[in-house]
Each structure stands twice: as C-alpha cells, then as structure tokens.
Amino acid sequence: MKYFVGIDIGSISTKGVVIDENNNIVASEYIWTNASPIEASKKLINIFREKCSKEILDNIYAIGTTGSARKLIGKIIGATTIKNEITAHAVGTMSRCKDVSTIIEIGGQDSKIILIKNGVVIDYAMNTLCAAGTGAFLSSQAKRLGVEVEDIEKYYMMSKNPVKIAARCTVFAESDMIHKAQIGNKKEDLIAGLCNAVVENYTNNFVRGRNIEDKVVFQGGVSKNRGVVEAFKKKLNKEIYVDEASHLLGALGIAIIAKTEARDNKVELQLKDVEYNIRENECKGCSNGCEVLYIFEGEKLLDTIGNRCEKGGK
C-alpha cells in the first residue's frame, strides 16, 4: 500500500493527514500554529513519526502542502506538491461528498465560498484585505467575554433573544458588543449575536448575487462551532452539512492532489532538527528591488522565494 501526506499550514492552526490509496484517512493531527509555521510543522511531523507504523512511514510517495505558509514549509520539507488552499478545499470536500454544490469555509484569518457544478469548481471568492467575520474575530471576542471558544455553542443554545451586532467590520462589531454588554444584555445573548454577526458578514460578502444550492457543506475551524452552524441554517434556510473531518478537509484535499501528481519514488517525511532562519531582504541585483525571502538551513542557503531573475537569490 502507498501512503500520501497532506499538510495545511493555516494562520491559526496546522493540520495534517496521512491517506492511503483509497483516500482513507489513516492518521490526522490538528495543532496550533502559534505564529510559527516552521515549529508547528516540526511538531506535526514528529507526532506523525511517533503515531504512524513503520509500514506507513516507509511507504510515503508524496507530500503536499497548502495554506498560507505552503511555499515556505513546502520548500523546507521538500514537498512534491504545493497548491493553494482554494483548490485543496474543493478537492478535499468533493472526495468526501460527491454531490456538494456550495462550500462555505471559514478559517482563522480568511473565509471563502466555492461553488461547484457537476464536479467542477465554477466560482469562488475569498475575503480580501480584512479578517472580519472569521475565527480570529470569534475567539478574540469570546476571550473578551471570558468564555472559552468551545463553550460558544452552549451559550448559543441558551440564548432566547440574540442581540443585533453590526457585522460589516470587526472594529465596529466590537464597539457594538461592548455597548450592548454595558446596557445589561445577557452573556448568552451577546454570544448568539456574535455568531449571527459572523454569518451576516459572510452572507454580505459572498452570498450576495450568488445562488446557494444544495448541498451546502460548511468547513474550516469555525464549522466546529455549532453556534455558527445553527446561525447559518437559520439565515440560509437550508440544511448545512458538517463533515466529522471538516477541519481537515484542506489537508485531505492537498494529500489527494499530491497523490495524483505522485511519481514512483518514495519520499521521507522528516524535518531535520536544525534551526531554519528566514531572512527577508531587498535584492540588490538591479533597481527593481524585489523582496526575496531567503531560507537558511543552519548556515546553508536552502532556497529562495520571490526571486524573479538570474541576478537575484544569491
């Protein structure tokens, strides 16, 4: 049996899966990125090396990376496939759910919508410039209210009268929420209002002018939050499906893409125990001043990102 690895290095969390030839997940892991993608990937790989049997580790044929740190981590671990998270999510979801038409994805710093018709992506959109209405917003506001993210669901269910919170912008939403708290609204109503605000923000940004058709699949870290799922159900008036691996579908997708692009040689899943230094420098080759990212493995220059000509990257 051949095995394939997919790693999705997101802004908040790093996800990894190992799949077999039939796309079954044989191992998976979900850890925090903590703003240090290299450390997180090291940790993730070490966990896999402990968790997986020798049979699996010796028969890995491809490694794919996706997520916002895909290029950096891809170069460091020698990934065979490096692809954007939009494609990875679409492929991952379609492998689990053949008849999906709409994918709603809300992660730590971004949110996207992917529309699928007959197994082909026909439209997608991703939030630009601003992270309003994403996981980061939910978790920071929950912290302000002294509520664990995991408990949001419980509070949502308790709420009888959710407050209305402006959804367009996180900064306004926050001042709105403080105001509502100061005039004595209950905590559960505030939290329910927050969940609704995330959904409002999402529909304002993405749903406008698009046809949401069944089947709707909701994924990404925020989909684990039943409060937001319920709010989506109410808003879209549709059944919302959440896969049990909804937080891993990006990693699953990239593993499947890596599988289709795999060659006949084995690769090793390993991150050397050396210090990786990243330096972002302006290239001095000409007046263009390209920003080049130099990746050093110890003292040795491993690779560069952002180099545009033969003069640079030295």
């Binding site: 916002s68 692809k83 954007n84 939009i86 494609t87 992506v121 997608y124 991703m126």
Partner: peptide, 8 residues
C-alpha cells in the same frame, strides 16, 4: 493564491 485557484 487567487490567480492560482482561478487557473486550477
């Protein structure tokens, strides 16, 4: 990222 996804 967006261009890549578009081309995919």
């Amino acid at each position: 990222t967006r261009v890549e996804a578009f081309i995919d």
